[in-house]
Design a protein around this nucleic acid. Structure first.
Lengths: 151, 151
DNA sequence: CCTGCAGAGTTTGAAAAGCCAACCCACTCT
DNA sequence: AGAGTGGGTTGGCTTTTCAAACTCTGCAGG
Protein backbone atom coordinates (compact mmCIF):
# COMPACT_ATOMS: atom_id res chain seq x y z
CA UNK A 1 0.00 0.00 0.00
CA UNK A 2 1.91 2.97 -1.22
CA UNK A 3 -0.79 5.61 -1.44
CA UNK A 4 -1.26 7.84 1.57
CA UNK A 5 -4.30 7.66 3.82
CA UNK A 6 -7.33 9.34 2.21
CA UNK A 7 -8.24 12.19 4.51
CA UNK A 8 -9.90 15.58 4.47
CA UNK A 9 -7.18 17.00 6.67
CA UNK A 10 -4.63 16.27 3.98
CA UNK A 11 -6.98 17.61 1.33
CA UNK A 12 -7.44 20.83 3.24
CA UNK A 13 -3.72 21.19 3.72
CA UNK A 14 -3.19 20.87 0.00
CA UNK A 15 -5.22 24.08 -0.27
CA UNK A 16 -3.97 26.09 2.70
CA UNK A 17 -0.95 24.11 3.89
CA UNK A 18 1.77 25.78 1.89
CA UNK A 19 4.04 28.24 3.57
CA UNK A 20 2.36 31.66 4.06
CA UNK A 21 -1.08 30.56 2.88
CA UNK A 22 -2.69 30.73 6.29
CA UNK A 23 -0.95 34.02 6.98
CA UNK A 24 -2.50 35.39 3.82
CA UNK A 25 -5.84 34.35 5.22
CA UNK A 26 -5.01 36.01 8.51
CA UNK A 27 -4.32 39.29 6.73
CA UNK A 28 -7.48 39.00 4.72
CA UNK A 29 -9.45 38.59 7.94
CA UNK A 30 -7.84 41.74 9.26
CA UNK A 31 -9.17 43.52 6.23
CA UNK A 32 -5.87 43.76 4.39
CA UNK A 33 -6.68 43.47 0.72
CA UNK A 34 -3.63 44.61 -1.25
CA UNK A 35 -0.53 42.91 -2.41
CA UNK A 36 2.05 45.24 -0.95
CA UNK A 37 0.42 45.36 2.45
CA UNK A 38 0.25 41.61 2.62
CA UNK A 39 3.84 41.20 1.55
CA UNK A 40 4.97 43.56 4.27
CA UNK A 41 2.78 42.21 7.08
CA UNK A 42 3.56 38.60 6.33
CA UNK A 43 7.20 38.98 5.41
CA UNK A 44 6.80 36.81 2.34
CA UNK A 45 8.82 37.19 -0.88
CA UNK A 46 6.72 38.86 -3.52
CA UNK A 47 6.96 36.09 -6.08
CA UNK A 48 5.93 33.50 -3.53
CA UNK A 49 3.04 35.68 -2.44
CA UNK A 50 1.92 35.94 -6.06
CA UNK A 51 1.91 32.15 -6.32
CA UNK A 52 -0.03 31.74 -3.07
CA UNK A 53 -2.65 34.28 -3.97
CA UNK A 54 -3.21 32.64 -7.31
CA UNK A 55 -3.47 29.24 -5.70
CA UNK A 56 -5.99 30.46 -3.14
CA UNK A 57 -8.06 32.13 -5.83
CA UNK A 58 -8.05 28.96 -7.95
CA UNK A 59 -9.06 26.94 -4.92
CA UNK A 60 -12.02 29.22 -4.33
CA UNK A 61 -10.84 30.54 -0.99
CA UNK A 62 -10.21 34.07 -2.16
CA UNK A 63 -11.61 36.08 -4.99
CA UNK A 64 -9.98 39.00 -6.72
CA UNK A 65 -11.99 41.95 -7.85
CA UNK A 66 -10.74 45.13 -9.53
CA UNK A 67 -10.67 48.23 -7.41
CA UNK A 68 -9.06 50.36 -10.11
CA UNK A 69 -9.55 50.11 -13.83
CA UNK A 70 -6.47 51.97 -15.09
CA UNK A 71 -4.03 50.88 -13.94
CA UNK A 72 -5.82 47.60 -13.45
CA UNK A 73 -5.54 46.65 -9.81
CA UNK A 74 -7.17 43.83 -7.92
CA UNK A 75 -7.97 43.32 -4.31
CA UNK A 76 -8.38 39.99 -2.59
CA UNK A 77 -11.35 39.05 -0.44
CA UNK A 78 -12.39 35.81 1.16
CA UNK A 79 -15.18 33.78 -0.36
CA UNK A 80 -17.74 32.02 1.79
CA UNK A 81 -15.40 29.02 1.91
CA UNK A 82 -12.51 31.27 2.85
CA UNK A 83 -14.48 32.86 5.63
CA UNK A 84 -15.13 29.43 7.04
CA UNK A 85 -11.43 29.03 7.62
CA UNK A 86 -11.65 31.54 10.42
CA UNK A 87 -11.99 28.70 12.91
CA UNK A 88 -8.71 27.17 11.80
CA UNK A 89 -6.91 30.44 12.40
CA UNK A 90 -8.53 31.02 15.77
CA UNK A 91 -7.61 27.52 16.87
CA UNK A 92 -4.00 28.02 15.84
CA UNK A 93 -3.96 31.38 17.59
CA UNK A 94 -5.24 29.94 20.80
CA UNK A 95 -2.62 27.16 20.79
CA UNK A 96 0.20 29.60 20.23
CA UNK A 97 -1.05 31.92 22.95
CA UNK A 98 -1.21 29.03 25.32
CA UNK A 99 1.94 27.08 24.59
CA UNK A 100 4.31 29.48 22.91
CA UNK A 101 3.83 33.09 23.84
CA UNK A 102 4.45 34.74 27.16
CA UNK A 103 2.11 37.52 26.31
CA UNK A 104 -0.09 37.24 23.24
CA UNK A 105 0.67 40.01 20.74
CA UNK A 106 -2.99 40.16 19.80
CA UNK A 107 -6.15 39.75 21.82
CA UNK A 108 -9.73 39.71 20.62
CA UNK A 109 -12.55 40.83 22.78
CA UNK A 110 -15.60 38.69 22.22
CA UNK A 111 -19.06 40.21 22.23
CA UNK A 112 -19.63 38.54 25.61
CA UNK A 113 -17.02 40.86 27.10
CA UNK A 114 -14.31 38.30 27.75
CA UNK A 115 -10.96 38.00 25.99
CA UNK A 116 -11.67 35.51 23.27
CA UNK A 117 -10.21 32.03 23.40
CA UNK A 118 -11.22 29.47 20.85
CA UNK A 119 -12.64 26.12 21.84
CA UNK A 120 -13.71 23.28 19.60
CA UNK A 121 -16.96 21.50 20.35
CA UNK A 122 -19.39 19.09 18.73
CA UNK A 123 -21.62 21.06 16.41
CA UNK A 124 -24.60 18.88 17.22
CA UNK A 125 -24.57 18.65 20.98
CA UNK A 126 -22.16 21.43 21.88
CA UNK A 127 -20.16 18.98 24.00
CA UNK A 128 -16.45 18.78 24.50
CA UNK A 129 -14.08 16.72 22.43
CA UNK A 130 -12.13 14.60 24.82
CA UNK A 131 -9.89 11.79 23.66
CA UNK A 132 -12.44 9.06 24.30
CA UNK A 133 -15.56 10.82 23.11
CA UNK A 134 -14.94 10.07 19.46
CA UNK A 135 -15.10 6.77 17.64
CA UNK A 136 -13.64 6.72 14.13
CA UNK A 137 -15.53 5.05 11.32
CA UNK A 138 -13.31 4.52 8.32
CA UNK A 139 -15.03 4.63 4.96
CA UNK A 140 -12.12 3.18 3.02
CA UNK A 141 -10.73 -0.28 3.57
CA UNK A 142 -7.39 -0.87 5.18
CA UNK A 143 -7.06 2.39 7.06
CA UNK A 144 -8.00 1.60 10.59
CA UNK A 145 -6.27 3.40 13.39
CA UNK A 146 -3.46 1.47 15.01
CA UNK A 147 -4.86 1.00 18.47
CA UNK A 148 -7.62 3.36 19.44
CA UNK A 149 -7.88 7.01 18.75
CA UNK A 150 -5.88 8.53 21.51
CA UNK A 151 -3.72 11.37 22.57
CA UNK B 1 8.70 48.41 8.70
CA UNK B 2 10.23 45.26 7.38
CA UNK B 3 9.55 42.77 10.17
CA UNK B 4 6.41 40.69 9.86
CA UNK B 5 3.41 41.15 12.09
CA UNK B 6 3.94 39.59 15.53
CA UNK B 7 1.33 36.89 15.87
CA UNK B 8 0.68 33.62 17.63
CA UNK B 9 -0.70 32.13 14.44
CA UNK B 10 2.66 32.59 12.76
CA UNK B 11 4.42 31.28 15.87
CA UNK B 12 2.26 28.19 15.88
CA UNK B 13 2.86 27.63 12.20
CA UNK B 14 6.59 27.74 12.78
CA UNK B 15 6.06 24.66 14.94
CA UNK B 16 3.45 22.71 12.98
CA UNK B 17 3.29 24.55 9.66
CA UNK B 18 5.89 22.66 7.71
CA UNK B 19 4.77 20.16 5.16
CA UNK B 20 3.62 16.87 6.76
CA UNK B 21 3.85 18.09 10.36
CA UNK B 22 0.12 18.16 10.91
CA UNK B 23 -0.23 14.81 9.17
CA UNK B 24 2.26 13.39 11.63
CA UNK B 25 0.02 14.67 14.38
CA UNK B 26 -2.98 13.10 12.70
CA UNK B 27 -1.28 9.73 12.67
CA UNK B 28 -0.24 10.10 16.27
CA UNK B 29 -3.87 10.76 17.20
CA UNK B 30 -4.84 7.58 15.41
CA UNK B 31 -2.43 5.74 17.63
CA UNK B 32 0.24 5.23 15.00
CA UNK B 33 3.54 5.39 16.83
CA UNK B 34 6.22 4.01 14.52
CA UNK B 35 8.34 5.49 11.85
CA UNK B 36 7.56 3.10 9.04
CA UNK B 37 3.83 3.20 9.60
CA UNK B 38 3.83 6.97 9.58
CA UNK B 39 5.91 7.14 6.43
CA UNK B 40 3.49 4.85 4.64
CA UNK B 41 0.26 6.44 5.90
CA UNK B 42 1.43 9.97 5.22
CA UNK B 43 3.34 9.36 2.03
CA UNK B 44 6.28 11.42 3.21
CA UNK B 45 9.90 10.88 2.21
CA UNK B 46 11.75 9.19 5.03
CA UNK B 47 14.39 11.87 5.49
CA UNK B 48 11.76 14.57 5.67
CA UNK B 49 9.79 12.55 8.18
CA UNK B 50 12.92 12.21 10.30
CA UNK B 51 13.39 15.97 10.26
CA UNK B 52 9.75 16.63 11.13
CA UNK B 53 9.70 14.18 14.01
CA UNK B 54 12.85 15.72 15.46
CA UNK B 55 11.44 19.19 15.10
CA UNK B 56 8.18 18.22 16.79
CA UNK B 57 10.05 16.55 19.63
CA UNK B 58 12.26 19.62 20.13
CA UNK B 59 9.20 21.83 20.12
CA UNK B 60 7.64 19.75 22.86
CA UNK B 61 4.71 18.52 20.80
CA UNK B 62 5.81 14.89 20.68
CA UNK B 63 7.97 12.83 22.94
CA UNK B 64 9.90 9.75 21.98
CA UNK B 65 10.22 6.85 24.36
CA UNK B 66 11.95 3.53 23.76
CA UNK B 67 9.66 0.58 23.18
CA UNK B 68 12.51 -1.83 22.55
CA UNK B 69 15.93 -1.79 24.12
CA UNK B 70 17.78 -3.99 21.65
CA UNK B 71 17.60 -2.93 18.92
CA UNK B 72 16.91 0.51 20.35
CA UNK B 73 13.58 1.66 18.99
CA UNK B 74 11.55 4.69 19.86
CA UNK B 75 7.90 5.43 19.57
CA UNK B 76 6.35 8.87 19.30
CA UNK B 77 3.52 10.08 21.48
CA UNK B 78 1.88 13.44 21.87
CA UNK B 79 2.65 15.55 24.90
CA UNK B 80 -0.05 17.57 26.63
CA UNK B 81 0.71 20.42 24.24
CA UNK B 82 0.53 18.04 21.31
CA UNK B 83 -2.82 16.70 22.44
CA UNK B 84 -4.14 20.22 22.50
CA UNK B 85 -3.59 20.43 18.76
CA UNK B 86 -6.48 18.05 18.25
CA UNK B 87 -8.78 21.02 17.75
CA UNK B 88 -6.69 22.29 14.87
CA UNK B 89 -6.93 18.94 13.11
CA UNK B 90 -10.65 18.63 13.69
CA UNK B 91 -11.22 22.11 12.34
CA UNK B 92 -9.21 21.35 9.22
CA UNK B 93 -11.07 18.08 8.83
CA UNK B 94 -14.42 19.74 9.03
CA UNK B 95 -13.48 22.33 6.44
CA UNK B 96 -12.27 19.71 3.99
CA UNK B 97 -15.36 17.60 4.50
CA UNK B 98 -17.49 20.60 3.83
CA UNK B 99 -15.78 22.32 0.93
CA UNK B 100 -13.64 19.72 -0.73
CA UNK B 101 -14.89 16.19 -0.37
CA UNK B 102 -17.95 14.65 -1.91
CA UNK B 103 -18.05 12.01 0.72
CA UNK B 104 -15.72 12.27 3.72
CA UNK B 105 -13.27 9.36 3.83
CA UNK B 106 -13.43 9.37 7.61
CA UNK B 107 -16.23 10.04 10.04
CA UNK B 108 -16.12 10.23 13.81
CA UNK B 109 -19.07 9.36 15.92
CA UNK B 110 -19.28 11.67 18.91
CA UNK B 111 -20.39 10.35 22.29
CA UNK B 112 -23.68 12.19 21.78
CA UNK B 113 -24.51 9.80 18.96
CA UNK B 114 -24.16 12.21 16.05
CA UNK B 115 -21.52 12.24 13.36
CA UNK B 116 -18.97 14.64 14.71
CA UNK B 117 -18.49 18.03 13.14
CA UNK B 118 -16.17 20.54 14.70
CA UNK B 119 -17.35 24.01 15.64
CA UNK B 120 -15.33 26.81 17.18
CA UNK B 121 -16.89 28.79 20.00
CA UNK B 122 -15.87 31.27 22.69
CA UNK B 123 -14.41 29.34 25.59
CA UNK B 124 -15.91 31.72 28.12
CA UNK B 125 -19.50 32.11 26.98
CA UNK B 126 -19.84 29.25 24.55
CA UNK B 127 -21.12 31.66 21.93
CA UNK B 128 -20.54 31.65 18.21
CA UNK B 129 -17.78 33.49 16.46
CA UNK B 130 -19.36 35.59 13.81
CA UNK B 131 -17.46 38.20 11.88
CA UNK B 132 -18.64 41.10 13.98
CA UNK B 133 -18.50 39.49 17.39
CA UNK B 134 -14.79 40.05 17.82
CA UNK B 135 -12.89 43.26 18.38
CA UNK B 136 -9.13 43.08 17.99
CA UNK B 137 -6.89 44.73 20.55
CA UNK B 138 -3.36 44.99 19.27
CA UNK B 139 -0.64 44.85 21.88
CA UNK B 140 2.15 46.04 19.61
CA UNK B 141 2.22 49.43 17.96
CA UNK B 142 1.66 49.90 14.29
CA UNK B 143 -0.20 46.69 13.58
CA UNK B 144 -3.81 47.65 13.40
CA UNK B 145 -6.09 45.91 11.01
CA UNK B 146 -6.71 47.71 7.76
CA UNK B 147 -10.39 48.43 8.01
CA UNK B 148 -12.26 46.28 10.48
CA UNK B 149 -11.88 42.64 11.14
CA UNK B 150 -14.00 41.07 8.51
CA UNK B 151 -14.58 38.15 6.28
C1' DC C 1 27.10 -20.52 10.99
C1' DC C 2 24.88 -18.48 7.00
C1' DT C 3 20.93 -16.31 4.90
C1' DG C 4 17.13 -13.58 4.94
C1' DC C 5 14.17 -10.12 6.95
C1' DA C 6 12.35 -6.07 9.61
C1' DG C 7 12.66 -1.61 11.63
C1' DA C 8 14.56 2.91 11.67
C1' DG C 9 16.85 5.72 9.93
C1' DT C 10 21.07 8.00 6.66
C1' DT C 11 23.12 9.06 2.26
C1' DT C 12 23.04 10.55 -2.47
C1' DG C 13 22.24 13.29 -6.38
C1' DA C 14 18.87 15.44 -9.29
C1' DA C 15 14.49 18.28 -9.45
C1' DA C 16 11.62 21.65 -7.35
C1' DA C 17 10.67 25.44 -4.43
C1' DG C 18 12.07 29.36 -1.96
C1' DC C 19 14.55 33.71 -1.51
C1' DC C 20 16.27 38.32 -2.70
C1' DA C 21 17.27 42.20 -5.49
C1' DA C 22 16.49 44.45 -9.46
C1' DC C 23 13.57 45.63 -13.03
C1' DC C 24 9.22 46.95 -15.48
C1' DC C 25 4.80 49.08 -16.50
C1' DA C 26 0.97 52.22 -15.75
C1' DC C 27 -0.46 55.56 -13.72
C1' DT C 28 -0.60 60.00 -10.18
C1' DC C 29 1.30 63.88 -7.83
C1' DT C 30 4.29 68.01 -7.56
C1' DA D 1 9.84 66.50 -16.15
C1' DG D 2 10.84 63.84 -12.19
C1' DA D 3 9.57 61.22 -8.16
C1' DG D 4 6.51 58.07 -6.08
C1' DT D 5 3.12 54.10 -5.73
C1' DG D 6 1.07 49.63 -6.66
C1' DG D 7 1.54 45.19 -8.42
C1' DG D 8 3.77 42.38 -10.12
C1' DT D 9 7.91 39.62 -13.24
C1' DT D 10 12.71 38.12 -14.00
C1' DG D 11 17.25 36.21 -13.10
C1' DG D 12 20.40 33.97 -10.26
C1' DC D 13 21.42 31.63 -6.23
C1' DT D 14 20.38 28.74 -2.05
C1' DT D 15 17.64 25.49 0.36
C1' DT D 16 14.24 21.61 0.42
C1' DT D 17 12.25 17.85 -1.34
C1' DC D 18 12.24 13.50 -3.32
C1' DA D 19 12.95 8.50 -4.41
C1' DA D 20 15.96 5.00 -4.29
C1' DA D 21 19.69 2.77 -2.39
C1' DC D 22 22.39 1.87 1.54
C1' DT D 23 23.50 1.09 6.60
C1' DC D 24 23.21 -0.90 11.03
C1' DT D 25 21.18 -3.91 14.66
C1' DG D 26 19.16 -7.64 15.96
C1' DC D 27 15.95 -11.89 15.31
C1' DA D 28 14.48 -16.45 12.99
C1' DG D 29 15.05 -20.49 10.29
C1' DG D 30 17.78 -24.15 8.35
Amino acid sequence: MTTPRPCSIADTLSVVGEKYSLLVLREVFFGVRRFNDMARNIGAPRDVLTARLNHLVEAGVLEKTPYSARPLRYEYRPTEAGRELRGVLLTLLRWGDRYLADRPPLVFEHSCGADFEAKVVCRTCGGDVSSDSMTPRFQAEGWEAAGQVSG
